[in-house]
Amino acid sequence: MTEKQPNNPLHGITLEQIVIKLEQHYGWQRLGELVNIRCFQNDPSVKSSLKFLRRTAWARSAVEDLYIRTINSPWVQG
């Protein structure tokens, strides 16, 4: 059973999709500046980022917050 969550911008999107979209939008270097975690700064990859973010709640929260701010930005289209 799935519930609709119209007020949850993260509903239906995976952490992997979030990381990929943020990397495509900002690039690894800028992403590492915006969210100060080593997996974005030192030999970054989607796989290593996901491994860290799935185990580290504060970092995942920071990435999700950045994603929400990014998709709500008037300068970001689609």
Rank of each mutant, 00 (worst) to 15 (best):
W28T: 00
L34F: 07
S73L: 02
W28Y: 04
E3K: 08
W28N: 09
Q24A: 14
V35W: 07
R38G: 13
K47Y: 12
R38S: 14
L10M: 05
E16L: 02
H25V: 10
I68M: 08
G27H: 00
Q24K: 15
L50N: 11
I20A: 13
Q5W: 03
S73N: 12
R38C: 08
Q24N: 15
A59T: 06
R55H: 12
T56V: 10
Q24H: 13
A59D: 04
S45A: 00
Q41G: 09
K4V: 00
L53N: 07
S73I: 00
V76K: 11
I37Q: 07
V46L: 03
L31R: 07
Y26P: 01
S49Y: 03
E3Y: 02
P9Y: 06
Q77P: 02
A59G: 13
P9V: 05
S61E: 15
L34R: 12
L22V: 02
Y67H: 11
S61C: 12
R30L: 15
G27W: 02
T56L: 04
P6S: 02
L22Y: 05
I13Y: 03
F52G: 02
M1N: 06
V76I: 11
N7K: 12
G78C: 09
P44C: 09
W58Y: 14
E33G: 03
V35P: 08
N8C: 05
V63H: 04
P9T: 05
Q5F: 06
I37K: 09
A57Q: 14
N7P: 02
L53E: 05
N8S: 02
N36C: 06
W28I: 01
G12R: 07
K47F: 12
L31I: 10
Q17T: 00
Q29H: 09
L66N: 01
D65M: 13
A59F: 04
R60D: 07
K51S: 13
K4I: 06
P44V: 02
E23T: 15
S73E: 02
P74C: 09
V76Y: 13
N72L: 00
I18V: 15
E3N: 08
I18K: 04
T14V: 04
N36T: 10
F52A: 11
K47T: 15
I71Q: 03
N72A: 00
T14A: 06
H25D: 06
Q17S: 13
L53M: 11
I13L: 07
K51Q: 13
P6A: 04
S45M: 06
A57Y: 07
W58H: 14
N7H: 13
G12A: 08
R54Q: 13
G78V: 12
R69L: 12
S61Q: 15
G27I: 07
R38I: 06
I20E: 15
T56H: 12
W75E: 14
P44F: 02
L66T: 01
A57W: 05
S48K: 14
Y26K: 04
E16H: 05
L15N: 12
R30F: 03
Q29D: 11
T14Q: 05
N72S: 10
R54L: 09
W28P: 06
R69K: 13
E3G: 02
I18M: 01
Q24C: 08
D65W: 05
F52P: 03
P74V: 11
V46R: 10
P74G: 09
Q29R: 11
E3W: 04
C39M: 12
S73F: 00
Q77T: 13
